[in-house]
Each structure stands twice: as structure tokens, then as C-alpha cells.
Design a protein around this nucleic acid. Sequence first.
DNA 1: TCAGTATAGTTCAAACTAGAACTAGTTTGC
DNA 2: GCAAACTAGTTCTAGTTTGAACTATACTGA
Lengths: 155, 155
Amino acid sequence: MSHVKKEPSLSVIRELARTFQAFEQLSAFHIRQMDLTPPQFDVVATLGNTPGMSCKELSEKTLITKGTLTGVIDRLIEKGVVSRCAQEQDRRSVMVALTAQGEALFQQVFPAHIAYMKTAFDLLEPADMEELCRRLSQLRAAFNQVLEQKKHEIE
Amino acid sequence: MSHVKKEPSLSVIRELARTFQAFEQLSAFHIRQMDLTPPQFDVVATLGNTPGMSCKELSEKTLITKGTLTGVIDRLIEKGVVSRCAQEQDRRSVMVALTAQGEALFQQVFPAHIAYMKTAFDLLEPADMEELCRRLSQLRAAFNQVLEQKKHEIE
DNA sequence: TCAGTATAGTTCAAACTAGAACTAGTTTGC
DNA sequence: GCAAACTAGTTCTAGTTTGAACTATACTGA
């Protein structure tokens, strides 16, 4: 997680890791009470209010890699929450969508979780959060840029 | 990861998850080239320049839970990088420390990784990063506070 | 002193994770 | 028109993750 010690510029990383972990703990604590795992919740939340989408699209939105997604979806199908359905136009692709039961689950579980997490955000000023967003976005851009650069250097 | 959609105040979460993931990808890309996993690197980095520490302490510093740590340390012992050694004063506790070979690995791998990650931070202003740190810390405090509160409510 | 309680680590089951190799289908360029 | 390159998903392996149950040891208070 932290991958670093106390070098000056890198205390950001420590803070980032610890903050993300604190979010995950709070979020997962609630999600587990609703009999889902965090990745399962992510998939249900992402499919809610949509006609369904391909694994690729789902993978991009949830940040779950395609290999992992196969297993997560398998387990959601066992629970009767989502379904897979072949595509006409591109036969490699699979459409994943909520079942009626999954739709009901989404309606029950998604607003409840938003409300739950909101109790944390209510402790903070909206302006501060906007500022945080902007700065996180800068940092993310730097990581992505360097990753691309380093990947090219390898060849 | 994201666990949320586009509710106004919660875009922070999206940004937090994506930024953290970008960091992990960049960091792991380098760590894998050095034949370590991110948790293994974390343990080596945390033990470097110390006389060793208990699993509990190691767990707190690395954010790796104790159950996971057992396995990570098992694999590092197989690699000959760390050692476990029983304690006199508290026989429940185990001291984990780098071996000579682990010390050498640390010297080689840790500065290299700091330098690697620094190429990303060099793209940013130090003042911006300090500001980011402060705001992350606020957010983390809010998550932790609500988690404690919610845990109490359960009983 | 000794029962109750707390703590340090390990073990376990179920799930997730990444990347790499693979299969099957699609697109491109010559 | 067809080989080469690309893309979508699945499968695989090794490792990590969590919480919970368990073992062994240490502490605490009547």
C-alpha cells in the first residue's frame, strides 16, 4: 500500500493510501451488511439505470480488470442479480445487465449506500472537496503520464 | 473501487479511487521489474534501516492486515529476505527483520523505487502537494470518525 | 490465585487481484 | 481474399485480501 517511507515529497503517497484505505473500510463495512462484496456492489451500481453494457465497458467504469470481472459476474449470476447475453453485431462481445431481481436490489442498495457515505461528506466543506478533486486529478495525470513514458522505455 | 456514480459530493471518491489506482499501477510496474510484489516491497521498505519489529507493528505501518502478513512474510522467508525470531519478553510476539541478503536487497531496491516515483512528483509543485496532503488528511479523518460511529451503532 | 479478558500470530474459506496465455471473432492492408 | 494484426472474454497461476475462528501467551482484578 504505502510503498514508501518518509522522503519529503512522498508523504503524499502515504496520505493517499491511508485515505483510500479509510474510505474502503467505511464503504465495505456497509456493503458487507447488505450481503455484497465491494466489487459486486460496484458492478450493480454501475449497471443500475442502464440497459446493460459489455464487459469491456464495465471494466473501464469499475476499474476491475477483465480477468477479475469474469469471476465477479459469475458470482452475481449465481445470485440471480445479473445476466449475460450474447451480442448479434459483435459475437466476441457479451452484454451484461441487471435482472429484474438485480434491478430491485439496486433500488434498495444504491440509495442506502449513498446516504451512508454522505454522513462522512457532511463533515466537510463542499469547496474543500472540490479543491481536493482538482489536486487529485493533477496527481493522477502525473502518474499516468509517467507510466506511459516508462512503458515505452522498456521496449 | 469506485462504489459510486455521479452524485455531486461523491465525485471525490471517484477521483480518489482513480488516483490511487494510477499510483498503484505505476508503482507496481516498477516493483514487478525488481521481482517483488507490492506488499513484499512494502515489508522490505518498512524493515529497512530498523533492527526489525513485531508483526503487529509491521502490520500498522504497511496497512497489511495480520492474517495477510503471515503469508507475505512466509514468501519473503522462502526468498531468504527476512527472518522470524522468537521474543524472550513476550512469547506470543515474533520479531521480523531483514537478513543480510534482505539488507542488500533493500539498499538496491528502495532508492531505485524512490527515484522512479520521483519522476512523477517532479511534474508537480511542492506547494500543491502539501495542500493535497492536508485535504486528504481531512477526508480521512471524516471517514474514520464515521466508521467508529457506525461500528458503535451496530451493537 | 485463578477466572476472565485481552493480545499476538496463525489458519481458514471465500473472494478478489494482476498479468499472461489462450480462444474466438473482427478488422486491416496489401 | 486472405494473412496479419487487433480485440473481447475466459482461463490460469500465484499472490493478496478480508473477517472469523483458533492457539498460545500475557495481564487483570476480586
